[in-house]
Computed example of a mutant assay.
Amino acid sequence: MFSRNNSNISFRTSIISNCTYSLSVGIKVDEFCYSMSRQSEINGHRTLKTYSVSDSYGRFGVHNSLSCWEDNKFRETFEENLQFIHMYPYGDSIPYIQELGLTGPFMESSAIKIPVFVTAASSNHFLEVQAQIKNLHNIVYPNYINLKFIFYDIGLSETEKEMVKKHCRCEYRSFPFEKFPEHVKFLNGYTFKPLIAQIVLNEYGFMLWMDASVRFLTGKLDNLFQMAVKDGVKLILGGLGVGYRTDPLTFKYLGEDPCLYADKNEIEASFILLYRNHFTIETIMRPWVSCALTSGCMYFPGSQKRISCYNQKGLGFCHRFDQSIMSIILWRLYHANFGKVLIPGIFFDIQKENTSRYFESLEKKSSATVV
Rank of each mutant, 00 (worst) to 15 (best):
T191A: 07
Y141E: 05
V289S: 03
S110F: 09
T218D: 02
G58C: 13
P287K: 13
T77P: 00
N43H: 13
P142T: 09
R306P: 00
D349W: 10
I16D: 15
T369H: 12
F279Q: 02
G296L: 04
H319C: 06
C170G: 05
K193M: 09
M87P: 04
N43T: 09
F359A: 02
S93H: 05
M36V: 13
Y51L: 12
D211S: 03
F338C: 01
T369K: 12
E70M: 14
G58S: 08
G104E: 14
V118S: 00
I199C: 01
K252H: 14
C168L: 07
I133Q: 00
V53N: 01
I16Y: 08
M326R: 07
V214T: 01
T103L: 04
G239C: 11
K73L: 12
E363D: 15
N8E: 09
M326H: 08
Y90M: 11
I42P: 00
N72D: 06
A368P: 00
P105T: 15
W69G: 04
T159M: 11
T20L: 08
I94G: 09
R332S: 08
F359Y: 09
P344L: 14
F321D: 05
F225C: 01
L48M: 13
N6L: 12
V233Y: 01
S109L: 11
T283A: 11
S213T: 12
N135R: 04
C291E: 00
H45M: 08
Y190H: 14
F106P: 00
C297A: 13
Q226P: 01
V242K: 01
E363V: 09
K193Q: 09
L127H: 07
Y141K: 11
S17M: 08
L293Q: 01
G232A: 08
L127I: 06
K73Y: 10
E162W: 09
F126I: 06
Q130K: 02
N18Y: 04
L274I: 09
M210Y: 04
K165F: 10
M163L: 11
K365L: 14
H167W: 14
V184Q: 02
G339M: 00
G26I: 10
S110E: 15
K364R: 10
T280Y: 08
Y244P: 00
R306K: 14
Y88H: 04
S65N: 14
D257F: 04
K264G: 03
G314V: 12
K364H: 08
S308F: 07
H86K: 10
E108I: 09
V214C: 01
S3Y: 10
I325N: 00
E160I: 03
S37P: 02
I281T: 07
Y90L: 14
S361A: 12
T246C: 12
F84W: 05
D247C: 04
P115V: 07
Y34H: 15
N277H: 11
N124Y: 06
L195C: 02
Y152T: 08
L224C: 02
F84N: 01
L156R: 01
T47G: 08
L224S: 02
E178S: 15
S110V: 14
Y96K: 12
L66C: 12
C309E: 00
F11A: 05
G345Y: 04
Q312G: 15
S17L: 06
I281F: 05
T250W: 03
I346R: 15
